[in-house]
Design a protein around this nucleic acid. Sequence first.
DNA 1: TAAGTCATGTAAAAAGTTACATGATTCT
DNA 2: AGAATCATGTAACTTTTTACATGACTTA
Lengths: 195, 195
Amino acid sequence: MGALGYAILGLLAREPLTGYDLAGQMRARVGSFWEARHSQIYPALARLEQRGLVTHQVVAQHGRPDKKVYEITGGGLDALRAWVTEPPAPRAVRDELLLKAFSSWLAEPGGVLTLFQDERRRHEERLRDYEQTRGWMEEAWGEDVRRPESPHFASYAVLRRGILQERGYIEWCRWVTDSLGRGTDNDDAGAEVRL
Amino acid sequence: MGALGYAILGLLAREPLTGYDLAGQMRARVGSFWEARHSQIYPALARLEQRGLVTHQVVAQHGRPDKKVYEITGGGLDALRAWVTEPPAPRAVRDELLLKAFSSWLAEPGGVLTLFQDERRRHEERLRDYEQTRGWMEEAWGEDVRRPESPHFASYAVLRRGILQERGYIEWCRWVTDSLGRGTDNDDAGAEVRL
DNA sequence: TAAGTCATGTAAAAAGTTACATGATTCT
DNA sequence: AGAATCATGTAACTTTTTACATGACTTA
């Protein structure tokens, strides 16, 4: 079973969810850091169920389609626990912006500047979101965020990684735009206008 | 054409290479930040050639198999230049260690501690490599690393991203191990011994 | 003599994306 | 009236990984 299965188990270890809920949580980066579409999730849930790692109950609703609420089983928890401490396979690095940066010397400087300014803005927005979530977590969960045996600690840890990631990305984008700006007419005014 | 094609073009824009060379450069993270196996590269080169973005010459060798040295064409350079300034598609986040962190609250604390100590060590090693490469680049390439129209600037920029990435990762691993350490018997001694 | 490097490919399988398919309810 | 949300699936396609296949030379 691939990482996707463990991503699903990791979410179900906290609370029972439908395939739709899982897709929603995976769209919202924080909380999982493993994206997947519903077209991947539904078959994955079926496979997990075949192996006895999850079960589901059909819940009828008024005026809405029936839903299947999935729960993790004892076997599922065991599998998840065992997987956590196994050393992770070194994953491939694949970042399109890095690839663009690598060939940026060929392109018009103005276009490259815009590219990195836009990217920085996106990461700044995401950082603000993360910082807000962090404040909320600290307020709502209190000392739990420091207790390694609490799921809240784990969520907080993942969020902290996201925050560091965004800060690093922003710092780098700033360095690139600064480097570009020095050589051309173009100063940072563009960024100020758009923000 | 996907990002892999542009990764290949980006390398060929600097120097002619064989499929084997390309695979080697893509294994070595720095310089490309887009990993691919030779089984993906050979067919991709054939597709690029069909579209007229690269050409090749067969070079016979003494006591070694013939090799196909690929070169980028004018059309290839145009396509690459155009692609660079297009906004990148937001790529999916997929990091197995993050996923493990997310479910770490279920596992034995000792195993989790080892996991993050090992990971930190790996990133520290990589950071040392990167810093060394950086020193070498600055010495060998001099002012070129500050000229956005030079491929050396682009390589340097990508390397800087790698350095920031590793620093962030290390900082995060340290925070996690510190957090775990506070709750258990286990202090940082293990890491000191193994380094 | 065994492992590693140079060198190029194909085939099968797994993982992931995009599009197809349906349908009621609620919000703007 | 149109878009978004809730809800579950399948099909076709693309991308990536792993394994198969070959073979000479070099280094430990």
